[in-house]
Design a protein around this nucleic acid. Sequence first.
DNA 1: CTCGAATGTTGACAGTGGCAGCAACAGGGA
DNA 2: TCCCTGTTGCTGCCACTGTCAACATTCGAG
Lengths: 207, 207
Amino acid sequence: MAKPRVKKESYHHGDLRQALIEGAIALISEKDIGSVSLREVARQVGVSHAAPYRHFADKEAMLAAVAEEGFRGLQDAMQAQVDAHPNQPLQQFNATGQAYIDWGLEHPAHYQVMFGGTQGNPETYPTLYKTAGQAFQVLVDAIVRSQVAGKIQPGDPKQMANVAWAMVHGMVMLILAGQLSPQQSAELSEFGRRSLLYGLAQQPSPE
Amino acid sequence: MAKPRVKKESYHHGDLRQALIEGAIALISEKDIGSVSLREVARQVGVSHAAPYRHFADKEAMLAAVAEEGFRGLQDAMQAQVDAHPNQPLQQFNATGQAYIDWGLEHPAHYQVMFGGTQGNPETYPTLYKTAGQAFQVLVDAIVRSQVAGKIQPGDPKQMANVAWAMVHGMVMLILAGQLSPQQSAELSEFGRRSLLYGLAQQPSPE
DNA sequence: CTCGAATGTTGACAGTGGCAGCAACAGGGA
DNA sequence: TCCCTGTTGCTGCCACTGTCAACATTCGAG
């Protein structure tokens, strides 16, 4: 077969780095995280098994890039809900939380990579933590607006966002781990968000 | 001591299965989860690399057993707090949640095995899910007692326990993943539990 | 005591992450 | 135009892993 003289088919790939990330995401969405190898990703992209090392220090670094892409997607999903409810801060807060849960359930393996991997120190992959922080900020902002509107008690919005994040994150994790049945998940998230919201709306008393 | 035959260097180990689980836990507590291999566990126990296959179908099955052991430890830690606060259901609920968080932070890799692994269907490792359910039950019971004492609103205690579980689980995960600083964690857990508790204590209104 | 069932061992295989060294480009002086 | 240097990709190799099959040793029921 005659080879097209297209530049994409040339010796150099063009944008291997991005192609690898997308290939990895594609593979991850079909299989589970553990059974995806660097070599298989390379194969999927049509490149030799050592080529990825020109773009990533090691496998973990590549997964970190995949995770980063995930946080971007997560942020977009949340931001879309904010935009969908202009001037309704509490609705934004609510819908943001639900969007978070939905995204996690729709991208189980990807979600796993975002949190299960790279334990520990943020210094290892600074851009990853920056991206994650930006996604988190969407939540914080929604809380601040709710406070301004008097729908949520005054107090450190970051602290509150942390609590809310822990809650939705925990739900996603438990459902993905099979500890909670999927059908429970809908009403659970409804119930959970309402309970938490009610707590945040008031001034919690020490006793 | 105790224990079955410590006959000097006998061909048969005596209780390899349990030794492997403990060896794996020991290794896991030093290194991270990803870098622990079946062969290394076998080496640690002083047995050949294929011996574990007489007791576990594969690596995943062994990690499931490790996870099971973890849930037992977690349950013990929670139950200890229940026993430490007799006739004080709300305190029990509170202390149980804190004990959960503490245990998770003290056994990061083990905790990871308990949740990060074995995605999906409970049928694969039924005893694992049974054990996890028993740990969960400690929480449910504390909530039921709190309801009887009128400290928490009526309603499905399982649902409430799910929410509480998601919350503490999310906190542990986020802290372990480095998304939350450890020093934040103390006051965060305090704040979070209080917010949630306040929400659960009241009847959440639909709006 | 005998013999099958458990349990442990050795050896092999394919697949993996990672490294070193070679090969094919790209682009900029001369 | 030609060479030259840096980038990117390739092939080959290594140690190691999970897993299986065949063999060895021991236990325990008969």
